[in-house]
């Protein structure tokens, strides 16, 4: 199925691809057909510079289980970060 499940938000950061670092200011998280992974559906994350349409992107395709683990890791790291650097989380 083409689920058309896709959520998008603005972000601030950088991503590193083959040519080097690039500014990223938008991320789309979708659960739909992956390009490379041999699954019908995957959790796909695309960081892009929205000023370049379509342009380079930092893309990740994950199994649902891997994506859940990533969410947990991110939350764990953020929790620990909030302890050592509380000002950054205000």
């Amino acid at each position: 199925m083409c689920t058309m499940i896709a959520e998008k938000t603005a972000v601030t950061g950088y991503g590193k691809g083959t040519p080097g670092w690039m500014e990223v200011n938008q991320v789309t998280v979708s659960y739909d057909h992956p390009s490379e992974m041999t699954l019908e559906h995957a959790l796909n994350i695309d960081f892009v510079d929205s000023s370049q349409k379509p342009g380079p992107r930092i893309a990740v395709e994950l199994t649902p289980e891997s994506a859940k683990q990533l969410v947990e890791l991110i939350n764990t790291a953020l929790g620990k970060g909030a302890v050592v650097d509380p000002a950054a989380f205000e």
């Binding site: 998008k8 979708s30 390009s35 796909n44 695309d46 349409k53 379509p54 342009g55 893309a59």
Partner: peptide, 16 residues
């Protein structure tokens, strides 16, 4: 009308 890049990059933009 989205523009031109590799098909998968264009499709990723269409998806977004």
């Amino acid at each position: 009308r989205i523009g031109h890049a590799s098909p998968e990059d264009v499709a990723a933009h269409a998806r977004s």
